[in-house]
């Protein structure tokens, strides 16, 4: 296996509940992301997959365990400026309507990120072209774009910073079904082109299957199973993974609701 770029070692994370007490969102998760690898992280709402993304970005503090990135240790971001060594982790968020500053032109938002990349892999026009937007998009404001287009802009901005690890936190969940695999594929291809590893978090195993080298399945804060994508899809070891796969409706026009016997 290739050299690892991101290491999660026994990560546990608690949330304080309003009425006192704690909720364990992530429990003892250990995971490695190799250089250039596409890892899909799959689970249902509340399974802790988004918390894991925040932990990796330093937006939450683990109660136990450590996260290593490219020789550095991920510390909680707090109010300080993000350390230079960690700028190589960038994220694409779920809601394309909230992840771009509505009052700034697209070009400005991307150029700012471009300034971070010492290797200068991309420039503004090559990036816009790569995400299938016309050069004129740079002069516009986010509200002029549709959801799918905004998500492509968010991907461009994250890539502009020259990340070594790109995290997609449910980046396709608020898009039309018809756009989902297209945007996921775009993310994978551009991550590969930029030499970045991709951690693709989604509840949709069908889409993840199309782009991921490996898949990790989470349930109630724990890792249930990690393995090669095709192995997980065809012969999952965990019962939960099987439930997930069986619940995906087939587009065969036969009128079968997942989980019920064929008529």
């Amino acid at each position: 296996m290739a050299e690892s770029i991101l290491q999660l070692d026994g990560i546990t994370c608690d949330y304080r509940l309003p009425g006192g007490g704690r909720f364990r969102a992530v429990e003892d998760v250990s995971l490695d992301l190799a250089r250039g690898e596409v890892l899909g992280l799959v689970g249902e709402s509340g399974c802790g997959k988004s918390t894991l993304a925040k932990l990796i970005c330093g937006l939450e503090k683990p109660a136990a365990g450590a996260i290593g990135f490219d020789g550095a240790r991920v510390e909680r971001l707090g109010l300080r400026r993000r350390p230079r060594a960690l700028l190589g982790i960038q994220m694409v968020f779920q809601n394309p309507y909230a992840s771009l500053n509505p009052r700034r032109r697209i070009g400005r938002q991307i150029e700012e990120a471009l300034a971070l990349d010492a290797a200068h892999r991309w420039n503004l026009s090559s990036l816009l072209a790569a995400v299938d937007l016309p050069p004129s998009a740079a002069d516009r404001f986010p509200h002029a774009f549709s959801g799918g287009q905004r998500q492509r802009i968010a991907i461009a901005r994250a890539l502009a910073a020259g990340p070594k690890v790109l995290i997609g936190d449910e980046p396709i969940a608020s898009l039309d079904a018809f756009l989902q695999s297209q945007i996921a594929g775009l993310m994978r291809d551009l991550a590969a082109e930029s030499g970045a590893s991709l951690l693709f978090i989604s509840h949709d195993l069908a889409v993840v299957r199309e782009i991921a080298d490996r898949v990790a399945v989470m349930q109630s804060g724990r890792l249930v199973e990690v393995g090669e994508t095709e192995q997980i899809w065809h012969s999952p070891a965990a019962a939960y993974t099987r439930t997930l796969i069986e619940a995906i409706p087939r587009v065969d026009g036969r009128g079968v609701i997942p989980g019920s016997p064929a008529p």
Binding site: C57, L59, L77, R82, L87, I89, Q90, M91, F93, Q94, N95, A98, S99, L100, N101, P102, E112, A113, L116, A154, R157, A158, A161
Partner: peptide
């Protein structure tokens, strides 16, 4: 999210 995205940059 856009503020968080800025912080990450």
């Amino acid at each position: 999210e856009y503020v968080v995205a800025g912080r990450l940059l």
